[in-house]
Design a protein around this nucleic acid. Structure first.
Lengths: 185, 185
DNA sequence: GAATTCATGTAACTTGTTACATGATTTA
DNA sequence: TAAATCATGTAACAAGTTACATGAATTC
């Protein structure tokens, strides 16, 4: 499972609190992985229980105490095993609620469906507009240190997938609308 | 949630057993929704408990008894509400284990990653080759009756998404490999 | 004065996965 | 004679969602 390995991977670079990790997930990684705080805190607790992390509490004045998590040797081993033995061939998440809905389209309203697809296009175009900002961020981040410089191409590849798939989504929704309007071919 | 609504939608046309429904999911709908038998049987039990389905048992000689599920009026209402009020704007499943892995690529083996991406390309190309067969099936199915004829364009749209996204996957993996090989621009 | 940020979670629930169990019939 | 198909599930677990709770500090 990937959330736990994501947490380990981030903690491999520096110790962080659950709150820090939540911010990384919800700001930087959100386009390929989302996670609620409740899940992150629970998984951190379990990872510590299993000896993959340790924690120690830092007192702060005025603010709540911080619980800093640090990866253990066992945690690094687990992470690297996942990293190197990841199976690219097994089919991923095949669950698309929108397609489930469209599959039954003949039982519903064509007008509403076209509206929905137009919303999809709008949202996707807004996402496309963000893309150059993301690439700029990656460039900036890559100048921080040596590891980040190495990471750059990998982050570019993840960002590229988002870009290509967002574009594909626009193409699909556009063609879907013209099929529904009987304009296709 | 979509599995339950998928079950209701299928049962809207004809009464079926859990086994029948499982086959539909694992043969026809598997490219946008997968489901284990254990989950299907559990959900059917819950749907019946909530009055959205009823069941009656048909004795068979030699074979195990059949438990035929039939949709109720409440079930049809629930289904149609989901069908018409589906929210196209809320972001779907943003969980891509492969991207999680690649995000940490600098910590791993570039050679293995390229191998993995080549496997992705291979699998996707095999899927592309299946596409014309799927479209033929849709054509055939559309000639069965009036409802199926109406359904045709909706099924085409779902199949089209698979086609476009599989192609996008090949594009992405190909470009990712050339980025990793330092051949990109 | 209101909203956001910082920082921690707990509880209850739903959804999805893995492994197991039964047993006859048909097909290769 | 071995494997696949028909047909039913149960049990235990892992992962994800929703709602709630606390309380000071900072920013608008």
């Amino acid at each position: 499972m990937s959330l736990k390995h994501g947490l380990l991977g981030l903690l491999d670079d520096e110790s962080m609190t659950g709150y820090d990790l939540m911010k990384v997930f919800n700001h930087s990684l959100s386009f390929f992985w989302s996670a609620q705080t409740s899940q992150i805190y629970r998984d951190l607790t379990n990872l510590e229980k299993n000896g993959l992390l340790t924690s120690n509490i830092e007192k702060q004045s005025g603010k709540p105490d911080k619980k800093l998590y640090t990866i253990t040797e066992a945690g690094r081993n687990e992470f690297h095993q996942w990293l190197n033995e990841y199976n690219f061939t097994k089919p991923g998440n095949t669950r698309d609620g929108m397609l489930m809905n469209i599959f039954f389209g003949a039982k519903g309203s064509k007008k509403k469906l076209i509206e929905g697809l137009n919303q999809v296009i709008e949202i996707s175009k807004r996402e496309m507009a963000q893309q150059s900002r993301i690439n700029k961020l990656i460039d900036e981040y890559a100048q921080l240190d040596d590891y980040s410089a190495k990471g750059k191409i990998y982050w570019e590849i993840t960002a590229l997938k988002k870009e290509i798939f967002t574009k594909a989504n626009i193409d699909w929704a556009t063609r879907a609308i013209s099929i529904l309007n009987g304009e296709d071919k």
